[in-house]
Design a protein around this nucleic acid. Sequence first.
DNA 1: TGGGTCATGTAACCTGTTACATGATTAG
DNA 2: CTAATCATGTAACAGGTTACATGACCCA
Lengths: 186, 186
Amino acid sequence: MLKHGILGLLNYGKMTGYEIMTVFRDSLSFFWHAQTSQIYRELQTLEKSGWIQSARIEQESRPDKNLLSITRDGKKELARWLKDDGLKSVIRSPLMMKTFFRGECSIDENIEFFKNLPEQNSVFPEGCKKADLLINEYQKNVPDRMKTLYWKFTMDFGLMYEKMLRKWCKNCIRELEEFKHGNTAD
Amino acid sequence: MLKHGILGLLNYGKMTGYEIMTVFRDSLSFFWHAQTSQIYRELQTLEKSGWIQSARIEQESRPDKNLLSITRDGKKELARWLKDDGLKSVIRSPLMMKTFFRGECSIDENIEFFKNLPEQNSVFPEGCKKADLLINEYQKNVPDRMKTLYWKFTMDFGLMYEKMLRKWCKNCIRELEEFKHGNTAD
DNA sequence: TGGGTCATGTAACCTGTTACATGATTAG
DNA sequence: CTAATCATGTAACAGGTTACATGACCCA
């Protein structure tokens, strides 16, 4: 999956591993985290697969750059991945895992848990405003609306997810309060 | 994370690796997938950590059982994990990754993509009814409402997530249709 | 007699995380 | 002078996936 993310970015233009890292950190981190160590490793395997090429660029004042570019085979693979609709809905959710077993804690502890969740579990580190700013910048700098539209879709998803999470927490708290006050009637 | 899921299950009572696998497959799979191979491996490391114990039970007509039980240290660790509020909101979402780069495909292809998504990406394999049935069964068989309440919360989350996903897809389709018909005004 | 369930796992591989290492430049 | 940024990675470990292996029982 990370492989194809990298291919997608290189399809926009040539980049270094470092730049790829910054894009993941600044723009994609709300749905995917990638460490430099993993990126550089994937770059090696991508090159072995013949999907990307690297060109050493010497610099005086800075360390040498390794400028990556996508190959024809890489573009083919990217297209194949996009067309392929095998998308498993694996929600691997640590949050659900922790919720499932909360019967071991007291009701008051759990009310506290759900109260703190929306803050702690925010998708956008700096809150929602950041997302709007990001998308505006994208649309200013990248004229191709065909691309920015889909970028916006991912942010919409993030915002809707956050909203849903807050609603769910409120529901949980309400039900716990009801249970506490003896109102166990369905 | 899987380690603690296993600890949580064994905290309800003694089980074999096989039974743990069936619980993950039948009840927890909508938020966590666990293969037998991984479960048996984790069981080994859990035993090495002193968090669980195993007792070989010989059977005549079936292979021997390895009945696992949680130890005092295991219970401590489970409690620690539940109390610890370090919950990173890592949404590792293949769906978002694929959405982000869809600018490479045609608008019509992408409308098709979003139309098919809710079916393909359903959290509950057999649809929502299954979830309701599951929760009702839980509440009948397990008298401890303190537990089933939290189980219900996880299912509520699954149902809300599905609803949100459908809404998001509808939004995306609407915006793509608008874009197609030249209505690019914000 | 063939497929499903019970019941155990191993091996190889791929992916993700944590920690470490280097070294120059530039902005406060 | 110190911290951040640019720019490269390696090593070890942890966690997840895929494929394979065994074997008896039970039900149709």
